[in-house]
Simulated assay, not measured.
Amino acid sequence: MADQRRGGANPRGGSSSGRRGPASDQRGRGGKPASGGRSGGKPTGRAGGRTDDKRAPRKGDWKRPADKEPVERTVEQAVYDGPPLPPEITGGEIDRSISNQLKGLPEKLAARIAKHLAAAGMMIDDDPETAYRHALAARARAPRLAVVREAAGEAAYAAGHYAEALAELRAAKRMNGATAYLPIMADCHRALGNAQQALKLAQSPAIASFSAPAKAEMTLVEAGARRDLGQVDAALRTLERAPLASKDRSPWVVRLRYAYADALVEAGREQDALTWFHRTHAIDADELTDAAQRAEELEKRLDPS
């Protein structure tokens, strides 16, 4: 950390030694030392031969004037400090698999990182920007831990910092070889205008071993990248390979159906889109989408009477 003290100049002027010049200048009348000096005109070292009773300033004498503001923290220091930690956060909220990865660190350091990671996880949905700052504070303390870089990447993604998210997740992947980040990384490429790079990640062989929700995430990103490139028919084919008719009512099925209905609208197939907006609404108990509203709008357009 950078030193927070002011510069080394003596606050009262002159050099910090307290000397005022050559020994010959320190003499009083008659060529005798001004005070307490030895013959020969050499300064005593006490108060530098000054003719008054004021001694030279010594370390600890000077205090910051009351009207001076504290030195501002640098950007790096502010990142390291992070936002204030909520008092209810203990660090015990993080998953055991994460805390196990912190065990190789000094106890106090690990505890502080755990608190920042817990705060990031707690805030990521409602205040993603602050969550990202907590994740950066953890990263500043342990940049070589994959779990920390992963947290920073996910928080950056939630906060809309897509280039930063991509860099963090790439770093995490280099460290632990995990492929679970691929859908988010692909979506970051999309957000940065690199649809072709998103499609390359979507073709990764690792996708075959993904769970159903993870596969759905990559399908959504791939279909979105196709639409970014103006390939609406290819986007529809991508979504049609997904389990749209699944009886599962999980959010990933809701989102797949909604994306399919939305792509059908873009393709000009409004009647089919209406059907799929209704099918989406039928399983969207938590109202994750505006499928009901979209269906109502289509009905009015298709049957204005």
Rank of each mutant, 00 (worst) to 15 (best):
Y157G: 02
Y80D: 07
L236P: 09
D233M: 03
Y258R: 06
E150W: 00
M123P: 04
D284V: 12
G36E: 09
G13P: 07
H281S: 06
S16Q: 13
P143Q: 02
K68L: 11
R227G: 04
V147M: 02
R301M: 14
P243S: 01
K59E: 05
T179V: 14
T90G: 05
G82E: 15
A242L: 06
A119S: 15
A118R: 07
F277M: 05
R241Q: 06
K68D: 03
V232C: 12
G41H: 13
G60K: 12
I89T: 13
S250T: 07
S246Y: 04
E222N: 10
R27V: 01
L236M: 05
K108D: 07
G91P: 09
N176S: 15
G82C: 05
A140L: 00
K54C: 12
T219A: 13
G48I: 15
K108Y: 09
I124P: 00
S246Q: 06
E217R: 14
G28A: 11
A295N: 09
A234Q: 14
S17G: 06
R38W: 03
L102M: 08
E266Y: 07
V79H: 07
Q101C: 08
A165S: 09
T130F: 02
D187Y: 12
Y181G: 01
I113F: 11
L220E: 05
A159E: 02
E297W: 12
G153Q: 02
L244P: 02
S16D: 07
Q197P: 05
I94F: 10
A178K: 04
A135V: 08
G92Q: 06
V253Q: 01
T275H: 11
S24V: 10
D284F: 13
A114D: 03
H189G: 08
A214V: 06
W276M: 09
R249C: 05
P57I: 15
G7S: 13
I207Q: 08
R96A: 11
P251R: 03
Q26F: 09
P65Q: 04
A245P: 00
E296L: 14
H134W: 03
R301D: 10
L85Q: 06
V253C: 02
K59P: 00
V148D: 03
A216I: 03
R27Y: 13
T219M: 08
A110F: 07
S35I: 11
T179F: 15
A242C: 01
Q203E: 15
L192I: 11
I283H: 04
W62H: 14
N100Y: 12
A159L: 02
P22D: 00
A155Y: 01
D248Q: 00
S16C: 13
N194Y: 13
G160D: 09
A263L: 01
E164H: 03
Q203Y: 15
L105E: 05
A291F: 07
L229G: 00
A78H: 14
L220S: 08
E266C: 01
P251C: 04
A191N: 15
L117V: 08
A259H: 01
A261M: 02
L199F: 13
A235W: 08
E287A: 12
A135N: 01
Y132V: 00
A167C: 03
D52R: 12
A208T: 11
A146L: 00
D303S: 05
Q231R: 13
R141C: 00
E164N: 05
W252D: 02
W62M: 02
G49Y: 14
R279H: 03
R64C: 02
E164F: 06
A206T: 09
D127K: 09
M123I: 01
T74F: 13
W276V: 01
